[in-house]
């Protein structure tokens, strides 16, 4: 994940689309596995981004208190 270009909102939209595609009954199983892998990767990126953001905010707050 490139954190300088990563967009949380875009990623969340991709996740929503992935889940919707997986819920369509016409999709074959291999395609589902592929989507699940893709979705899991996006989830991982989102969590990483949120963790980094939270850490950055904590640092800013600590700096301000000094």
């Amino acid at each position: 994940m490139d954190s300088s270009t990563f967009s949380l909102e875009t990623a969340l939209n991709q996740l929503r689309e992935t889940v919707e595609k997986m819920q369509m009954s016409s999709l074959n199983f291999d395609e589902n596995i592929r989507l699940f892998r893709e979705g899991t990767e996006i989830v991982k990126n989102c969590r990483k981004y949120l963790d980094e953001s939270e850490l950055m905010i904590r640092q800013l707050i600590d700096e301000e208190k000094k």
Partner: peptide
């Protein structure tokens, strides 16, 4: 994000 993971 947690919710999407559950749905996946």
């Amino acid at each position: 994000v947690d919710d999407y993971q559950r749905r996946l």
